[in-house]
Design a protein around this nucleic acid. Structure first.
Lengths: 346, 346
DNA sequence: CTATAAAATGCAAGCGCTTACATTTTTTGT
DNA sequence: ACAAAAAATGTAAGCGCTTGCATTTTATAG
């Protein structure tokens, strides 16, 4: 007949005829216990199917070997690869990852931060700098180190690992402009609470300014990240008077949506309309035509983030923000504007 | 000067001039505390930035209001929508979701199950039935209810919510065969440890058998779930002698990969080759041509799963497995086989 | 073989919270 | 206005684990 309740350290200790302290040591610092005892204890652990209670452990030891990450969404691939790499590296380091998503909503993010902190996350990975000051001070008070990813901005107080979104987008925009495009459409995520989106928009504006293109030549649409909304936004852009000759998108998902819509409208890419993305996720290279986009070193970012954060947590190490480089990925969806492209069709 | 350490219940109690019990009640059962006291306490909570320690709470209360889910991958959209809905519904019910991914590896899944259990997950959502018996008995011993999703199989001991993968795929295959296809290619996920994949393959086989098609007419390739591997597998299928006239795919991601590869090879879909998917994720309807696939009610599954699991946890309720219906989504990527399609091209 | 250092183990005090039960305060009925 | 019932609050016992310190055992040296 099975024991009714979950076995505890004490059950193991009793059965193995040692003290709870010894059992604990067998589990946490096995080399402080002599071979024979250890084997005996571990056998009992096995036999009883003992599994330590996390809450009690966290309470007593004041650390959890857990790191939390809060990403805006799990619904598309944008964060998937980076987080996957992050998780893999953490595993190597013996740390568990807890992921939560905020649906791009600040209040939900704040709640998730509290939840993960209360659950004893030793450190937190957050996306982007933008959030209430109060959250940062809360985390500081709790003694939970934070690493911001997906952006690099040395002027922000929080330490970050990522890339210069503004610069990356600016480089791409310069490329676009160099090809002769003067009227630029831009489909972006909503700027509110999303500094990556803001940086990228600024990047386009900067490139335009540097090339003497009037800011009014930019058609900006903000929408949520999904293939479908990319398609809708694209249609809107195309149906406006004085339509752009290129549609730059805040990420690859939007760009794929735009691209599908273009085909649907009978527009050839890039002959009739150029489209660019951002991120270089798998989708970008398999899309037809393959997307010109900005390559982001997601895996590298995830790996480094893991190492940094663990060092911050375990050794109290301080880091400076780390910049990773992006590069432009020229593929088929971008070319010169069509010759007589001054205005709407017909 | 700020307090050095994280404030505890006791700090709040002292400052508010009440007992810790009262503070605890203010937080957990506010209606058992009189208005004035409550306000005073909550003010102090606010002021001190107090946040309850999860471990201590779990330890004392023996529940965590947390549910864990372990999905095979976060890398693509297959599970995203269902899990998103699951999470949203849980939020409504005041329960937090913890997600972990197993990378389709049994041992990692087992580890994650232990981790989440030790962390005090009150219940677990798992994908598919297939896993070591020992894991089930472990969970039973720990008193952690499990709900299996993405499959419906009343013959399995674990209670599940999902659809009949075999039947769904069989229906689609029957449709395919009815159009005249005799040589069928099938790109599947690896069967090992993935009962959904196995069920789906069986579905195709069943449909073939019912229609008197020799089992040898099935070309099966197992590969991992990614656009790229879908493309590779498709190429392999096309380059084999006696190539199929239709390529059925274990999911939409593979199908999109196949579709891209087809275009690359100059094959028209569906005139030269038909392709089908499974899941009906967003990608399927925006793909060009739009994918004929099996629609799975992901959101509904997620929602119901949340309600069931919470009822199991909170009220100890027992459920029978629940079947959700899928339906075939006929779109453009499937048609009759080309007229003279007996063998390789040329 | 004994003295001493080192290694192994045990003891017991919390970690921060919830909750049954005890006590005090407020409300209600007459 | 007073007793009894109800509501609010306090007291204190754990929940299961880690860990500093004390004690016992084993290894090492003379």
């Amino acid at each position: 007949m099975k024991k009714q309740s979950v076995p505890t350290l004490e059950d193991v200790a009793l059965e193995a005829n040692v003290s709870t302290a010894t059992v604990s040591r067998c589990l946490n610092t096995p080399d402080r216990v002599v071979e024979g005892t250890r084997r005996r204890v571990l056998d009992v652990v096995q036999k009883l199917g003992y599994s330590p209670n996390f809450g009690a452990r966290a309470l007593a030891a004041k650390r959890t070997n857990t790191i939390g990450a809060i990403i805006p969404t799990m619904e598309n691939a944008i964060f998937a690869r980076g987080i996957q790499a992050f998780q893999e590296e953490l595993r190597e380091l013996g740390v568990t990852l807890l992921v939560a998503s905020s649906s791009y909503q600040e209040d939900i993010e704040a709640e998730q931060i509290r939840t993960l902190t209360a659950r004893g996350a030793d450190g937190l990975l957050l996306i982007g700098h933008h959030r209430d000051k109060e959250i940062y001070s809360f985390l500081e008070r709790q003694g939970v180190p934070v690493l911001v990813a997906w952006v690099y901005d040395p002027n922000e107080p929080a330490v970050s690992i990522g890339f210069d979104n503004r610069l990356a987008m600016k480089e791409l925009a310069k490329e676009v402009i160099a090809l002769g495009h003067q009227k630029i459409g831009l489909i972006s995520a909503e700027q509110k609470g999303n500094d990556r989106a803001r940086y990228r928009i600024t990047g386009v504006r900067d490139a335009m300014q540097e090339n003497g293109i009037a800011p009014s030549s930019l058609r900006l649409i903000e929408t949520r990240y999904s293939i479908e909304s990319g398609a809708t936004a694209f249609a809107e852009l195309m149906n406006s008077p004085d339509r752009p000759t290129v549609v730059m998108c805040g990420n690859d998902v939007l760009a794929v949506g735009a691209s599908m819509q273009a085909k649907q409208m009978g527009l050839r890419i890039p002959q009739d309309i150029s489209i660019t993305g951002f991120d270089d996720i798998e989708l970008a290279s398999v899309a037809d035509p393959a997307l010109t986009t900005v390559h982001v070193p997601h895996r590298k970012m995830g790996q480094n983030a893991a190492r940094m954060l663990v060092a911050m947590v375990k050794e109290g190490k301080q880091f400076n923000s780390t910049q990773l480089m992006t590069h432009i990925c020229i593929r088929e969806s971008l070319s010169k504007p069509p010759l007589h492209s001054n205005g709407a069709v017909r």
